[in-house]
């Protein structure tokens, strides 16, 4: 049996994952080095990569802070009843169940230029939909569960005793968090960051809907790939896609490294 299953597994991996990845590499070199460079140094490519970069940084920072705090509350807080905790806990997963396109649509529906809120913000000169804030919001929504879901099980596993011990030794919550809790959840947070970066880097549907995909203004790397494909400019699409894929593979490697480090500790 073993002789059948292992080659079969290899086959699935090669067909489904390895060949496609290689194809992106070869595809972007189809017109040689210059074609690849040209695809990347187009004005819209550079702008799109910059937009993606901004979104990744802002979203990761915000969702890390809020995600860790919410995880702490959902596991530890005594000021929340158990029922409310359970309810909030299941609400955390909602973005998983929501198609990214729908996620984007929600933001358009609530904050779009034709809504009361959207009009209000536009009046004070703060454009949300079809602008960067909306794209960040959409990505925040989509990536929110990742951090919470990485940190919560770690908190549950370590239990509250070490924190209680710290409090009987006179430490208040801030000190306890940094000196007792943080060292234990550090790796969970790192995983969460990696996942959040990967997801916000690759977010497409929600951003596409919210941004309007305006070249050189609200276009991100993934929506640029989409546009290039739609325009049958496959080589250019490949160039940008290669950069994104390289980042993803890099993140995956980082994750593996982190897991190994953690096992050593």
């Amino acid at each position: 049996m073993k002789k059948v299953w292992i080659p079969l597994t290899y086959l699935v991996f090669i067909v489904l994952l390895i060949i496609p990845i290689l194809k992106i590499f070869t595809g972007s070199w189809a017109e040689g080095w210059s074609g690849f460079i040209e695809a990347l140094t187009r004005k819209q490519s550079l702008h799109a990569l910059m937009m993606t970069g901004i979104i990744v940084v802002v979203v990761t920072v915000l969702n890390t802070i809020f995600g860790v705090m919410l995880a702490l509350y959902l596991v530890r807080a005594t000021w929340l009843g158990q029922r409310i905790k359970n309810l909030l806990n299941s609400l955390v997963d909602l973005p998983y169940a929501v198609s990214p396109v729908i996620g984007g649509l929600m933001i358009v529906l609530i904050l779009g230029p034709s809504t009361a809120l959207g009009a209000f913000f536009e009046d004070i000169g703060f454009k949300i939909v079809y602008a960067l804030p909306g794209m960040i919001l959409a990505t925040l929504f989509v990536t929110f569960p990742l951090m919470v879901r990485e940190v919560m099980p770690v908190l549950q596993e370590i239990g509250a005793q070490q924190e209680e011990a710290a409090s009987t030794l006179g430490a208040y919550s801030w000190y306890t968090f940094w000196h007792v809790t943080w060292p234990s959840i550090r790796w969970g947070v790192i995983y969460g960051v990696v996942l959040t970066v990967a997801r916000s880097l690759g977010e497409f549907g929600a951003v596409l809907v919210v941004s309007g995909n305006i070249m050189n203004k609200t276009q991100t790397a993934t929506t640029l790939v989409y546009q290039d494909v739609e325009n049958f400019n496959v080589v250019a699409a490949n160039g940008v896609a290669l950069v994104l894929a390289a980042f993803s593979v890099g993140l995956l490697l980082l994750m593996e490294w982190a897991k190994k480090r953690k096992e050593v500790h």
Partner: peptide
């Protein structure tokens, strides 16, 4: 008074040592 201000020492059943 919170535990921080009670002037007590507590030895936990599983010791709850800071493992790092």
């Amino acid at each position: 008074l919170p535990p921080q201000e009670r002037g007590i020492g507590f030895v936990f059943q599983n010791y709850a040592l800071f493992k790092h």
